[in-house]
Nucleic acid binder design. Sequence first.
DNA 1: AACAATTGTGACTTAGTAGTCACTTTTAAG
DNA 2: CTTAAAAGTGACTACTAAGTCACAATTGTT
Lengths: 224, 224
Amino acid sequence: MPKETFHQLKADKKKRITNAFLREFALKPYDEASLSEVVKQLGIAKGSIYQYFEDKMDLFLYLIEQANSVKASYIATVKRTGYPDFWSYFMDLFKAGLRFDAEHHLESHFLFGLSQNLYSPSVEPIFDKMMLQVVQVFEEMVKAEIEGGLFRNDIPTNIMAYSLFHTGRDMQEHLQFIGLVNPQKSIAQELPVYHHKEELLLEHVQHYINLVKPAFNAPHHDKS
Amino acid sequence: MPKETFHQLKADKKKRITNAFLREFALKPYDEASLSEVVKQLGIAKGSIYQYFEDKMDLFLYLIEQANSVKASYIATVKRTGYPDFWSYFMDLFKAGLRFDAEHHLESHFLFGLSQNLYSPSVEPIFDKMMLQVVQVFEEMVKAEIEGGLFRNDIPTNIMAYSLFHTGRDMQEHLQFIGLVNPQKSIAQELPVYHHKEELLLEHVQHYINLVKPAFNAPHHDKS
DNA sequence: AACAATTGTGACTTAGTAGTCACTTTTAAG
DNA sequence: CTTAAAAGTGACTACTAAGTCACAATTGTT
């Protein structure tokens, strides 16, 4: 946890520091991110960082927590109730993610990068825990849909949950793969990841959803 | 490319060196893998490495090429012809992967690790190229199945290809997630990744395939 | 046995890192 | 204005890395 000193900083400075580190950790995996470089950019002393945080990991965890909580506030606006089928709900979750991205592009980049840099030895235990939680949430979702008769019930729920969770990640990665989004570039230009590409993007996502839908949905009873 | 000197080495020594580095790069991402550590383990001098390879990247690329070519020889034994449906073919591809793993566990571990450590800045361009090729192969597969009327044709083929490609990766990752496979541990114990877990594993994979099957298959014509 | 070519060596250079701490500057309180 | 507390500093330690190179040892050839 950050030290008292950090929280006593003027909101202005606090933000400037947080952003600089979000930027660094968005561009490089944990072990390659350099505190020395960032303090140089910020024009502050190396020692100051250690007035604010215990160590590099403490700082990193703070960033994760921050970014996650901001994103969570966007996701929380979408409630399953009110959607007759799961997939329009899923789509709206994605749209909430887009709004988050537009309004907090650094946090969005940072989280985007995180999801693609699991498995570095020094961060693996942390990410393992995070994944566990996330997949659990997805498993609850899946169970609820099975309960409601919308999802099929012939596959273990943990497999469905994992696959659903990955659908989101894979979509993101594919967008990067085909060059529709370019984190490196958009960070450099200080633009949102999905800037000005919302239509193309939603079309893409719709295709992806159309593809995976039959995998999860309960089969129709054409003749029963 | 490795230097002449390396190829002139006795097969014995060549293997010993290759294996030691496969091991290191299987455990850590490129930038964290330490040549200094490996030469210490091997009991040879640091300078020797630079008699064999241009630099770290040259060595790394050699390892990729080696491991890939070994694996390819296993995959090549499975031909689409002779399988009435795509998914039994897909399953057999996976089984070929299992045989590869049982007989070349270091190479298998190494490639397993690769697929989960894309996106480090220093290796991104290389992996981008690899991915491009792999996805292209998957796209050809998908197109052939659409041609043959077995896959649906209402989704862009590149999306289907990417999703299919990821299905394989996600399955692997899930196996690791639930603890069924543990690369770190099995490298340490010098055992194949999938050692003694083939039955459980195949069951798991079958579930996964059953799940995604309806996403790709052309819909049945119950009433047409 | 003598010589040449190849292979092997490890101290060294250069460069980067996280983290520390005795000290200075700024801010707040009396 | 004076003093005490808080915040800021940057040279420094201790470490690890990739890559180099003058030299030593080994191998092959005449």
